[in-house]
Amino acid sequence: MIDVFLGQIWPYVLGALAILAAWLSARRSGKLAAHAEDAVHRAQKKEKTDKEVRNVRNEVASLDDDTVDRELDRWVRNR
């Protein structure tokens, strides 16, 4: 009696497990894609910040000491 009952529901149990596995797989791939997109965004932001830092360093390096002092004084007053 139980063998007949299990034989009848076994395909449904396997189908449910397959649906669950597909859902978990899709969820995981969605999370991985979101993490990859976030990593790309962070890398682009870091690249932009690094470029700005290089520009400021080059600009300061090209100035003489008196000009740097005046610019820093003006910057501190404006803050």
Rank of each mutant, 00 (worst) to 15 (best):
K45C: 03
H35V: 13
V56T: 05
V56N: 07
I19H: 02
L17T: 06
G7D: 02
G7H: 00
N78I: 13
D3N: 12
D65S: 03
A22Q: 11
T49S: 04
K51I: 01
N58V: 02
L6Y: 07
L20E: 01
V60C: 08
D50M: 10
L20M: 08
N78Q: 11
L6N: 05
Y12A: 07
E52N: 04
E52M: 08
K46N: 06
D65H: 09
D69P: 00
I19N: 02
N78V: 05
N55E: 06
D73W: 11
E47Q: 12
A21L: 13
V60Y: 13
N55Y: 07
W23D: 04
L14M: 07
K51W: 08
A61D: 13
L32I: 13
E59A: 15
E37Q: 15
V76E: 03
L72T: 09
I19V: 11
A21V: 15
R77V: 10
K46G: 01
S29R: 07
G30E: 15
G30S: 11
L6Q: 09
A36L: 13
L63R: 12
K45A: 12
A26D: 12
D50K: 07
Q44R: 06
K46P: 00
K45D: 02
I2Q: 06
R42M: 05
F5N: 01
N55V: 12
T67S: 09
Y12L: 12
E59N: 14
D66L: 03
D65I: 12
Q8P: 00
H41I: 13
D3H: 14
E52G: 01
R79N: 12
L32F: 09
N58Q: 11
L20W: 06
V13P: 00
T67I: 05
W10Q: 14
L24T: 04
L32G: 03
P11F: 04
V76Q: 03
R57C: 08
K31E: 12
A43P: 00
P11E: 03
N58D: 14
K48P: 00
R70K: 14
R70A: 13
V4P: 01
R27K: 13
E37P: 01
A61W: 03
D3P: 04
E37S: 15
P11K: 03
R54S: 14
D50Y: 06
R74F: 00
A26M: 05
V13A: 08
K51R: 14
A21R: 05
V76W: 02
R42D: 03
T49Y: 01
Q8A: 09
K46T: 06
L17Q: 10
R79K: 13
E71N: 14
S62F: 03
V13W: 05
K51G: 07
L24F: 14
M1D: 07
K51L: 13
V56G: 01
A43M: 08
D3W: 04
